[in-house]
Write a protein that binds this DNA or RNA. Sequence first.
DNA 1: TATTGTTATACTCTATAACTATA
DNA 2: TATAGTTATAGAGTATAACAATA
Lengths: 140, 140
Amino acid sequence: MARAPDPLNDVDALAQLSFVVQQKLQRRSADHDLSMIQTRLLGVLRDRRPTMKELAELLDLDKSSISGLVDRAEQRGLVTRSPDDTDRRAMRVSLSDAGAIVVADVTDRFSDDMSALLDPLSAADRRNLTELISRILPNP
Amino acid sequence: MARAPDPLNDVDALAQLSFVVQQKLQRRSADHDLSMIQTRLLGVLRDRRPTMKELAELLDLDKSSISGLVDRAEQRGLVTRSPDDTDRRAMRVSLSDAGAIVVADVTDRFSDDMSALLDPLSAADRRNLTELISRILPNP
DNA sequence: TATTGTTATACTCTATAACTATA
DNA sequence: TATAGTTATAGAGTATAACAATA
């Protein structure tokens, strides 16, 4: 007779779930030849036009790392740099049309993955899970 | 009056949770000057003595990437290579005493982080969350 | 003087291809 | 022949330090 799997403790459950979710996102990114950090870059640009400094804060990277990251994304035509309107030292980064299409596709397919992951749960259980997770996430 | 945060949909809840969890692990790893992949290497060695090929499968990396990864861990005294008993082509990798201490510390502190994260939930809610997550994780 | 961004440098991480030794 | 592992090479990603332009 089939044995039930070992019950997970709460710490292991959170850790394993995070790896599964990240792996899905990584694979959908790789389908577009994007690294996780490139996908995160495009993701934060969906609703922002940040300066390089703001990008460094959003992605928790050094400003010099942002320079290289944006360089490579710009060479691929996914983002564009423009001078800031008022501060002539600053550059603002925005998504190109091509970048918007790519990030939308990654997002859509990742959403499909997450829906598939949630498939074993009833609608009520799903609402319950989302509510519990919302309560432990740091308030936006 | 303070507004409640926007309610998250289930996909966003899973994605955000995974980033929070991974960020905690990354920071605890960085405290020991370990990258995430080095921590994962030490983690899989806690209960295994795999060959290089098995490590490549466990970490989903090319065997040549494993060579470099193990090289650097070995130079830091965290792991050791030993020849396989029966296949003279193969090498087995194991945790050193120092490596075991490091991975135990990262694990303990990460567990503390996860417990703190779960703090807003009652014991019953926590059990409920763990049960729901267990049902969506791929069966081991 | 302080801040924004870039560049030079060094290191880690990763894959591909070619290689050696063993099965 | 096929497999296990290493090495050479190339490129992405990262931080530190030094720098130029602007505030």
